[in-house]
Amino acid sequence: MSQTRTEKSLLPLDAADLQLFKYQLKTKAQSLSFGRRLYQCNAAEDVADEKQFWLKAQLTNSSGFSSEGFLQELRCYRIMHAQQMQIMLPFQIISNLHIQQGSEHLNFTEVLLLPHAPAFFQQDPLLLTLPQVKHWLWQAIDALDQLEQAGWMHGDIKTEHFVMYEGQLKILDFEQARQIIAPAHVMNATPRYMAPELFQGQPKDIASEIYALGIVFYEWLSGQRLKASSYQDWAVLHCQQLKIELPAVFNAFLPLLLGMLAKHKTARMQSFLALKRCLITEIA
């Protein structure tokens, strides 16, 4: 493996060390056909979590459509770093990288290297005090509020995109991120987190972001994953059937969730700042 140019590193890592790494392909089968490659990698002499990394890349001969999301993510990392946003993991973008993976020799124009970080919402809320649960929710809201205040929306909010790194919440996956003032061209969303209006063909906006985060919070606090077997079933669930019920110990957070998960977007809380105010004023 070799590389010819590395941008200023934001990781405590010498890019030359990548030549000594061991790589394990983690790309889902569905994504392989679109040229996406995701590797979990670590230094050969140390496999501790703090020495593990994730390498994300797109094959150079893949279609324009499948490449656009990856290129958009690279753009977002560069721009948000320039804006000095603190919600991203430290990262490294490396150009002209060549990987020998078994008998396969892969060439990548650019790759994104991120450190390993555990899931933020893997913490059982029942093992936390109510002030701690409140702080957990606050961290997620605050991160997305920072995005909104900087003029961005994430576009793909889901549980697995929140991680913990060095004691702070960070957000992953900016492939669908866009500036709020930019028009939305492609409707690409995960049905589990889709606001009712998205099933009706409306574009993503801050209201749909708030709804998606509400689903993240609801599943975490309830300890249950929403279930549906098809896109149509998800549409019926979100547009008609979803009822918000929490364990009694978390009922203090019910007004917040009801404000986030209102079926009609006009009845929903309209900003992440509004969510923060709700946490401060209504939840002691």
Rank of each mutant, 00 (worst) to 15 (best):
L137P: 04
Q132M: 10
P115T: 11
R5T: 04
F272E: 06
R178F: 05
K51Q: 15
H98I: 09
Q270M: 03
Q224F: 08
L25I: 06
Y77H: 15
Q58C: 06
T6A: 13
L246K: 09
S230I: 08
F65C: 00
F91V: 09
E104W: 03
A195K: 10
Q179W: 09
M187V: 05
S63M: 04
F65R: 12
T281G: 00
A44K: 11
A140G: 15
S103C: 02
D173G: 00
A184G: 01
E110Q: 15
S67A: 15
A48P: 00
W138D: 05
L32K: 14
E73N: 07
L261K: 12
M80V: 01
P191F: 07
E73T: 12
K265N: 10
R268Q: 05
M80K: 07
T60A: 15
T4C: 01
D233S: 15
C239N: 13
L20M: 02
H81N: 15
A82H: 14
D14P: 02
S63H: 09
L261Y: 10
V249Y: 07
F253E: 07
L144P: 07
Q224I: 10
Q224H: 13
Q30D: 13
F91N: 11
F253R: 06
K28H: 14
E175W: 03
Q123R: 11
A184C: 06
I215T: 09
K51A: 06
D124S: 13
H185W: 06
L18D: 02
D145I: 01
D173F: 02
L144G: 08
R78A: 14
P196F: 06
T6C: 09
K158Y: 04
L198I: 12
L106H: 13
Q139Y: 00
V47D: 11
F34G: 02
M153N: 02
D142I: 00
K134I: 00
A274C: 04
C76G: 02
M269G: 00
K204Q: 14
Q241E: 15
T109C: 04
W152K: 00
L114N: 09
S103M: 09
H116R: 03
A16W: 03
S95Y: 10
L106E: 11
H238M: 13
H238C: 07
A119M: 06
F121S: 05
Q241T: 05
L273H: 13
L127H: 13
D14A: 13
M153T: 05
M88I: 04
A284L: 02
I87M: 11
R192D: 01
D205A: 10
A177Y: 03
F253T: 05
T281F: 09
Q122P: 01
L128C: 14
K22E: 12
S229C: 02
Q224T: 13
Q122M: 05
A44C: 01
F91R: 08
